[in-house]
Simulated assay, not measured.
Amino acid sequence: MKLKRYLQVTKPGIIFGNLISTAGGFLLAAKGHADLSVFLATVIGLSLVVASGCSLNNCIDMDIDCKMARTKNRVLVTGVMSFKAALVHGLLLGVAGFWTLWHWTNPLAFACALFGFVIYVGVYSLYMKRHSVYGTVVGSLSGAVPPVAGYCAVTGRFDMGALILLAMFCLWQMPHSYAIAIFRFKDYEAANIPVLPVVKGVSAAKQQIVLYILAFAAATVMLSLGGYVGYGYLAVACATSLWWLKMALSGYKHGIDDRTWARQVFFFSIITITSLSVMMAVDFQTPAHGVLAFTF
């Protein structure tokens, strides 16, 4: 039971989702020649960093978690785990994760992870989430870091492929998060968290969901246009993006239940990003030098 609480405070579902995207970015860059030791160090290191961020987020959000139905049973709210234990646990996980990335990957992958961690814990959790409707935008930056860090762990440079991944996963986060905010509207309202549906209304959030899915679809195609992936990936990207867009547009049908619709959009967002992470890992290509092949 004691081990279970230490696991729960790290939000295992989020860790698993980030692990898949990290592996996708790494294998995309490796192009079939993955170094197993570097791969393991990357996914383990980043998983530990994500676990650390989630643990610290639980510590920061104790006062608002108790007001929300979906979070009121978290271990810190119920008292199953103490604040001090969660804080120390989170810090130790962070040290272990960053040490792993520093010693077994490269400085750029380490820097990517550090950037994401600081944005999530220091900027999003401590301030933006509670004070600005743009908190979701800021949070999307940290959510996009794992695949980029996985990619950079192989290449050691930030090139167009890394930039496209950053854009893809940032844009994906927005409709994904807004859908959650719609079907959990009462939770966010009760906790006084200024997410878009609460501040500007569900109609505004629906519009933003459609626009962000369109932008996401364009970003996914850029990986193919840049020569990083093959036609298999392109087919899956087009099919999932168009179906996701169709689902989003169905939110304008007369008499539709917004909560049910938002749940469907949310769940399909997970299917979409998981499918693309898998396809970029298996349908990689070597891009030709050209306009889309710059390097920082």
Score class of each variant (00 low, 15 high):
2 K>C: 02
3 L>H: 09
3 L>R: 06
4 K>E: 11
7 L>W: 12
10 T>E: 05
16 F>A: 15
16 F>Q: 14
18 N>V: 09
19 L>V: 15
20 I>Q: 12
22 T>K: 04
29 A>M: 05
42 T>L: 04
46 L>C: 07
53 G>Q: 06
53 G>I: 08
57 N>T: 13
57 N>C: 09
60 I>T: 09
63 D>A: 08
69 A>Y: 07
69 A>K: 15
72 K>E: 12
75 V>F: 03
75 V>E: 13
76 L>D: 06
79 G>K: 07
81 M>V: 02
86 A>T: 14
89 H>E: 10
89 H>A: 03
98 F>G: 10
98 F>I: 12
104 W>M: 13
108 L>W: 08
116 G>R: 10
118 V>H: 05
119 I>E: 05
120 Y>T: 00
121 V>T: 04
122 G>F: 07
124 Y>K: 13
127 Y>S: 13
136 T>Q: 06
137 V>G: 00
140 S>K: 01
140 S>L: 01
140 S>G: 07
151 Y>S: 09
159 D>F: 10
161 G>E: 04
163 L>N: 00
164 I>R: 00
164 I>Y: 05
167 A>S: 12
176 H>F: 03
177 S>A: 14
177 S>F: 14
179 A>H: 07
180 I>H: 03
180 I>R: 06
181 A>T: 07
189 E>Q: 15
194 P>A: 04
196 L>T: 06
197 P>F: 11
198 V>M: 04
199 V>Q: 14
201 G>C: 05
209 I>N: 11
210 V>A: 04
211 L>F: 13
218 A>W: 00
222 M>I: 03
222 M>E: 12
224 S>Y: 15
225 L>S: 04
232 G>W: 14
235 A>L: 15
237 A>I: 02
241 S>E: 03
242 L>N: 05
242 L>I: 12
243 W>T: 10
244 W>L: 10
245 L>R: 08
246 K>Q: 14
249 L>W: 07
254 H>Q: 15
254 H>A: 15
256 I>C: 08
257 D>E: 14
258 D>W: 11
259 R>I: 05
259 R>V: 11
260 T>R: 14
266 F>D: 03
269 S>P: 00
271 I>W: 12
271 I>A: 13
275 S>N: 09
279 M>Q: 11
282 V>R: 02
283 D>K: 02
286 T>R: 15
292 L>S: 02
293 A>T: 15
294 F>M: 12
